[in-house]
């Protein structure tokens, strides 16, 4: 096991710690947004949905400050090797986190369109997709902060496969779970759209995990491609 080394320039260590803290904070907000929007969806709670939308500005603010810090560190410290990989990875990760946040906002906006609550069986599948995505997000960000990969790849792969399966079920059988009563077309479409947003959130979590591999080990690992068993993505 390699020794933990510190930079001769102490302030560099402090600023890298600050970078990681900010990314961690941004991830916590994105996680909370997803948790809250799914609760809003379950209860048709428009007030809670609006509060999720209101947090968008805060997420953008953190993204800009992290981006500025990265640029400053690149210019001032001229980092190399592991430090350079960490900073460039951070620039990519905050974009993924911002997109995750944006999709939660999209779900919140969708809630405005619903005429009635979604059937419980439909919501349960969507909720499972959200929970799996939140677990992936937490694992990936934990690996980014600690610099340790542990079982990250396995944790990500199995969860993303399940999210994919659930999404494809929504696309292939959109009426599943809506029962025999008159179905609101808007609700069916909304359910499929929400499943799409959650599938994209999962993809961004996988992106984050893949990028962390580059930051820590310097190798490119495309977990998405592995998960799709070598199928080429457009």
């Amino acid at each position: 096991m390699s020794t933990v080394r510190k930079h001769y320039v102490k302030v560099f260590d402090e600023e890298l710690d600050k970078l990681k803290s900010s990314v961690s904070r941004m991830a916590q907000i994105a996680d909370m947004q997803l948790l809250n929007v799914m609760e809003a969806l379950r209860r048709m709670d428009h007030g809670l949905a609006e509060s999720v939308i209101d947090t968008d500005e805060g997420v953008d603010h953190i993204e800009y400050s992290v981006e500025n810090l990265c640029i400053e560190l690149l210019a001032r410290m001229q980092p190399l090797a592991g430090d350079l990989r960490l900073i460039t990875t951070t620039l990519k990760i905050i974009t993924d986190l911002d997109r995750i946040s944006d999709y939660s906002i999209d779900i919140a906006l969708r809630i405005r369109q619903l005429s009635t609550p979604l059937p419980e069986t439909v919501y349960t599948r969507l909720s499972e997709m959200a929970s799996l995505s939140r677990e992936m997000l937490r694992s990936a960000v934990q690996a980014y902060v600690s610099g340790r990969l542990d079982e990250l790849e396995d944790e990500i792969v199995k969860r993303e496969e399940r999210v994919d399966d659930l999404f494809h079920e929504f696309v292939a059988h959109p009426l599943n779970g809506f029962g025999e009563e008159t179905v609101s077309h808007l609700n069916v479409v909304s359910a499929v759209l929400v499943s799409k947003y959650l599938e994209r959130i999962a993809d961004h979590c996988v992106n984050i995990a893949s990028r962390v591999y580059y930051a820590v080990e310097g190798r490119r690992v495309n977990l998405n491609v592995r998960i799709r068993h070598g199928l080429v993505r457009a």
């Binding site: 080394r5 001769y8 190399l80 592991g82 350079l84």
Partner: peptide
């Protein structure tokens, strides 16, 4: 060498680390 050095001593030197 500068993106992903093979040796820890190289990494420590080019990133300005000690320990």
């Amino acid at each position: 060498l500068f993106e992903h050095p093979s040796d820890e001593r190289t990494e420590a030197y080019i990133t300005g680390k000690f320990g």
